[in-house]
Design a binder for these strands. Structure first.
Lengths: 111, 111
DNA sequence: ACATAATACATAGTTATGCAATGTATATTT
DNA sequence: AAATATACATTGCATAACTATGTATTATGT
């Protein structure tokens, strides 16, 4: 009966987590938007809605954590590939450090 | 320079995480609001603003995950003690399971 | 041939929540 | 007497995920 609560909670947990996940996936890799959604689904069983991803990528671009480049395909729609900037890499390091603390803290509390 | 971004990001990560932390702290324990803030600060170095905690506790009460009772003090302001309900305990178990998955997924991605 | 699904991008509006600012009241410290 | 700490609470703002919707191309099924 509180499935509704759990559902909303998971959505809230994603706030912030998604940016962290995307930056991690882009570390040492280039991916285009649609591919990022699939990649995250495979690795984490987390579903990212398209209406979530594209605004997110635009925020990350505006903050200069990622850059994008259009790549024409032999057939089909051109793809916009994203990759980390230096700022993006530095930010990811700080985020990783915070996440690690959070992980430890929750493990300490929840046992 | 992107301290601003990091700051906002941490705030976003707290969305959802805080409810999970609070429910964990209340497992097998009773705490009053102000004490919860101190408890979390001690264990996690996470700062919860009062303007965050009290609305959060009211939401958790409305969702019937916690109950509260006023306890008069020999001196000073009466304290409102919170404790988990059965629904709260069940919900915490589901949350723990999701969190554990998320933790694994991020560890997989970030290495 | 035609419809459906999958790929690939994007935006507008809704909703939820952390936080700063502000307020009330009591107790303790300087 | 003033400042700080304790203890509750609310209002308004900013942020971000999600649903719904839209455009366009290619592949698959009947």
């Amino acid at each position: 009966m509180n499935d509704e609560f759990i559902h909303k909670w998971k959505s809230q947990v994603k706030k912030g987590t998604l940016a962290f996940i995307i930056l991690n996936v882009l570390k040492d890799n280039k991916f285009y938007g649609y591919e990022l959604i699939e990649e995250v689904r495979k690795f984490t069983s987390i579903e990212i809605a398209e209406g979530t991803l594209y605004p997110l990528m635009n925020r990350l671009k505006k903050e200069e954590l990622v850059v994008s480049e259009w790549v024409e395909q032999n057939s089909g729609i051109p793809r916009k590939y994203y990759s980390l900037t230096t700022i993006g890499e530095e930010t990811l390091i700080e985020m990783t450090s915070y996440w690690s603390e959070l992980e430890k803290a929750i493990n300490k509390i929840s046992k």
